[in-house]
Amino acid sequence: METLEFEIKINAAPEKIWTVLWDDLSYRQWTSAFSKGSFYLGTWDEGSIIKFFDPNNNGMYSRVVKNDPNKEMIFLHLGEIYDGVETPQDWGDATESYILEETEEETILKVAIKSSPEFKDFFEEKFPAALQNVKNLAENQL
């Protein structure tokens, strides 16, 4: 596992960024950087299972390990979904963390992903665009 780290400074309050990250409509907008038509099913409650899909009903499922509103969200990735069928994977501690740090001038969104090498290039290509989407939505939505 390799930890990939991304961050972006956003001129918005943590509450606004949190809403952009996890509300259904804006989630679909910012995650379009990974796959147009991305969506999720489930809740963000700690301990719950959340399923992330592309428009072809493929994706992954994860457990919400931590949900500290407006501060931190952590998922543990458990397996893949193909044609709606869940297949567990032995990914160990494959986590994805979102941390919001408020400063006097802005909020810093930090993302850390523990990933296997096969996904590294994908994340390094797509995550900067996804975070730019989050920034644009948080700074420009009414």
Rank of each mutant, 00 (worst) to 15 (best):
Y82P: 02
P69V: 06
K126E: 12
T3Y: 07
E101W: 00
V20A: 07
G37H: 07
E139Q: 11
K36H: 11
V64F: 05
A12I: 00
S26N: 09
N67I: 00
D93P: 06
A112N: 11
F6N: 03
A112E: 13
E2A: 14
D24R: 14
S62H: 05
P69G: 06
I74M: 10
D54Y: 02
D45T: 09
Y40D: 04
S116P: 00
W18A: 06
L21T: 01
L41A: 10
E72N: 12
L41E: 15
R28L: 02
L78H: 07
I81M: 11
V64W: 06
G92A: 10
T95Y: 12
Y40I: 07
W30Q: 13
V20P: 07
D121F: 05
V20H: 10
K135S: 12
L78P: 14
W30N: 11
L131N: 10
Y82F: 14
A94L: 01
K110S: 13
P14I: 00
Q141P: 06
L25C: 03
E102K: 15
V64N: 09
E2T: 08
G84H: 08
Y82W: 11
Y27I: 00
P55S: 02
I49C: 07
P55F: 04
F52E: 12
L137D: 11
W22N: 07
F34Q: 11
E72L: 13
K120S: 14
K120L: 05
S62E: 13
L21C: 05
N57H: 12
A138D: 07
N11G: 01
W44H: 15
H77E: 12
F34M: 14
E2H: 13
S116Q: 11
T95K: 11
S35N: 14
W44M: 07
S48T: 05
D121G: 09
L100A: 06
T3W: 04
T31Y: 11
S62N: 09
I49F: 10
E125H: 07
Q89T: 08
V65W: 04
E7H: 14
L100N: 05
P88H: 06
D54V: 00
A138I: 00
T43V: 11
P14A: 03
M1S: 13
F123Y: 15
K51D: 14
P117F: 09
A130E: 07
E106T: 01
K51P: 04
G47K: 02
F52S: 12
I113D: 11
P14L: 01
W30H: 15
L4W: 06
E86V: 03
N133T: 01
A138G: 08
L131V: 01
P14F: 06
L100P: 00
S35R: 06
F6P: 07
D54K: 03
Y61Q: 10
L100Y: 02
E124W: 04
E105I: 00
